[in-house]
């Protein structure tokens, strides 16, 4: 395989360099350079106004303050983890269940599939708006239906810290389950139909057939799902930002960063420190997966 590289003419070498080089440069400049700069900035104190000379380094101060006196930091970490758990433990099985049922070649499959999938197509910002109409304390669908908008038995879906995280998680799961349904449907298509038939005829109950025949086939997809879910959980932002700006019980790391560095406040160093925490968690989840995937593919590729 390496032989091919040697056969390249000078001109081809330039072409290859351009083809790989320009996109790489763009990604380096606009994604990785800022990512590294965020790490550097996290050790500084900077208002973001004025030249780079106004930046002062103050070691791990930002991190110390973040871990000790910021009352929102640990809740935000906790909420990101709850978000992840909810998507994994509720959204994923739900998506898998829907896919399994829709794979049975029943009527109206198209309709069901579309219904479950629509939320994935709509932007998360719009989803935030739509769910706000549902959860509105006075006029929302839920409180109107159950008459829980009267003093005394008021349900404050958006404001109450006991409710709002779960309320917004319902919206997130609503979207996520549809997404995963499609992934799993594709996986199920690759299960040998005769296998499914056989399991069904054997009198194995739905659950038995699922567990012993279908689930093993879905294993490789589960890895992809795991990564997709981790990323979604860490990236969660739009829904909450539109829903209640991450106040009072729905704090997330992405929102804390935004408030510290893009809002009227400008604590660039401090916000960057939160960004670094989020980046470390993200990369910790991403890199090992990608490394293994690419290595395996390369081995398979060479073996071909």
């Amino acid at each position: 395989m390496t032989a091919r590289v040697h056969r390249l003419t000078k001109r081809d070498k330039v072409v290859v360099a351009v083809m790989a080089g320009i996109p790489t440069l763009l990604a380096l400049c606009l994604v990785w350079l800022p990512a590294i700069a965020s790490i550097v900035l996290s050790f500084t104190n900077w208002t973001g106004v004025g030249g780079l000379s106004t930046i002062t380094f103050d070691g791990v101060d930002n991190y110390k303050q973040l871990f000790s006196i910021n009352p929102q930091f640990w809740p935000a970490v906790e909420h990101n983890l709850i978000w992840l758990a909810a998507l994994l433990l509720v959204g994923t099985p739900l998506g898998m269940f829907l896919a399994y049922q829709l794979d049975k070649k029943i009527r109206l499959t198209k309709f069901y599939q579309t219904a479950f999938f629509l939320p994935v197509v709509v932007s998360t910002a719009v989803i935030g708006f739509v769910w706000k109409l549902v959860y509105d304390p006075d006029n929302g669908l839920i409180n109107s239906l159950f008459h829980t908008n009267k003093p005394g038995d008021y349900l404050d879906w958006i404001g109450s810290p006991h409710l709002n995280l779960w309320a917004v998680l319902v919206a997130a799961i609503w979207r996520h389950a549809g997404y995963l349904m499609v992934l799993y449907l594709a996986g199920l298509k690759s299960v040998d139909p005769s296998l499914k038939e056989a399991a069904a005829l054997d009198g194995a109950g739905g659950w038995q057939a699922f567990r012993h025949v279908v689930f093993p086939v879905l294993k490789p997809i589960n890895i992809v799902v795991l990564v997709v879910t981790i990323i979604e959980a860490l990236r969660a932002f739009d829904i909450v930002w539109v829903f209640n700006k991450g106040a009072q019980g729905t704090e997330l790391l992405s929102i804390l960063i935004t408030q510290n560095i893009v809002g009227e406040a400008s604590r660039i160093g401090y916000g960057s420190a939160i960004a670094v925490v989020l980046m470390v968690i993200s990369l910790g989840a991403i890199i090992p997966y990608l490394w293994v995937t690419f290595r395996r593919e390369r081995r398979e590729g060479n073996g071909r």
Partner: peptide
């Protein structure tokens, strides 16, 4: 592989992680 990693991992980073330096840039 490093190149693929660079692209794919970059895509998976949360947007907020790079926003300040990007905006200064």
């Amino acid at each position: 592989i490093p190149l693929l990693l660079l692209f794919t991992a970059g895509n998976l980073l949360p947007q907020q992680v790079i926003i300040t330096p990007l905006y200064r840039l």
